[in-house]
C-alpha cells in the first residue's frame, strides 16, 4: 500500500517536470526560463530553506516561553 503511494507520487513528480522540459518557452525573458524544472527546484529548496531559516531564527532569536508576556493563557 505504502509503496503504491510512493510510486504514484514519484510518477506524478516526474510527469510534471518532464512536461515542463518538453514545452519550454520564454515569454517575458526571465533568467530562469531556460532552466528545466526550475519551479520544481524552487518548490523543494524553497520549502527546505523556509523551514530551516525560520527554525534557526526562532531558536536563536525569536522564540520565548508562552508566559513571556506575563500571561500563560491559564485563564481560558
Amino acid at each position: 500500500m505504502k509503496s503504491t503511494w510512493l510510486v504514484l507520487v514519484v510518477v506524478t513528480l516526474v510527469l510534471t517536470v518532464s512536461g515542463d522540459i518538453l514545452t519550454r518557452k520564454g515569454e517575458y525573458g526571465q533568467w530562469w526560463y531556460p532552466v528545466p524544472g526550475f519551479f520544481a527546484l524552487l518548490g523543494l529548496l524553497g520549502c527546505m530553506a523556509i523551514v530551516v531559516v525560520s527554525k534557526l531564527l526562532g531558536r536563536y532569536w525569536l522564540q520565548r516561553r508562552e508566559d513571556y508576556y506575563g500571561d500563560s493563557g491559564a485563564g481560558e
Binding site: V9, D20, A40, G46, C47
Partner: peptide, 21 residues
C-alpha cells in the same frame, strides 16, 4: 500549460519537502 505546469511543480515539490522535513 506553462502556468499549470509551473504551479504543479512548485506545489508538488513543496509537498516532497514537507514529507522530508
Amino acid at each position: 500549460f506553462a502556468h499549470v505546469s509551473e504551479t504543479l511543480q512548485l506545489l508538488l515539490f513543496t509537498g516532497l519537502g514537507f514529507w522530508l522535513l
